[in-house]
Simulated scan of single mutants.
Amino acid sequence: MPIDAGSMHFLVGPGIALLVVAMLAVFLRWAFASGSSAPRQREELLTPVATLTRRESALALRAVLSDAGIRSTIREPAAHRADVLVFPEDLDRARALALSFGGK
């Protein structure tokens, strides 16, 4: 069956492709939706327990925390500033040790 030269048959292929892409986008949005319309609040994995001016002091506090069985790490967000971070479940014990720590 010959195709009429004046018809819009050349739009059928791209039209089908656009329809498939749109359906795929709708499916993926549904599949990966969070389940609630409220924005999720980001939970922090580590919590700052002390901010010190010297890295060496932060390392010393980290050693004290390690001796007490508390896992910690150091973040240096700016020059002359070192934050000691711990997991939330160790925060109370870590703060008590940080208050008794004299190496600021």
Rank of each mutant, 00 (worst) to 15 (best):
M1S: 13
M1Y: 10
D4R: 15
D4A: 11
A5M: 13
S7E: 11
S7W: 05
H9D: 09
F10E: 08
L11M: 02
G13M: 06
P14E: 01
A17I: 01
L18M: 09
V20L: 15
V20N: 03
V20K: 00
A22H: 04
L24K: 14
A25C: 12
A25W: 10
V26M: 03
F27C: 01
L28V: 10
L28D: 01
L28Y: 08
W30L: 06
A31I: 04
F32N: 09
F32R: 02
F32Y: 03
F32C: 12
A33G: 15
A33W: 15
S34R: 10
S37G: 07
R40I: 10
R40E: 09
R40W: 08
Q41T: 14
E43W: 05
E43L: 08
E44Q: 01
E44G: 00
L46A: 10
T47E: 09
P48Q: 02
A50L: 08
T51R: 07
T51A: 13
T53V: 06
T53P: 08
R55F: 05
E56C: 03
L59I: 04
A60E: 02
A60W: 01
A60C: 02
L61D: 01
R62M: 08
D67K: 15
D67A: 15
D67G: 11
A68R: 15
A68N: 09
G69M: 08
I70D: 15
T73V: 12
R75V: 06
E76W: 04
P77Q: 02
P77V: 01
D83K: 11
L85T: 02
V86H: 03
V86N: 03
F87I: 07
D90F: 02
D90G: 00
D90T: 00
L91V: 01
D92R: 10
D92G: 07
D92Y: 08
R93M: 11
R93L: 12
A94C: 10
A96H: 10
L97A: 10
L97D: 04
A98T: 13
L99R: 15
S100Q: 13
G102N: 10
G103P: 12
K104C: 03
K104H: 11
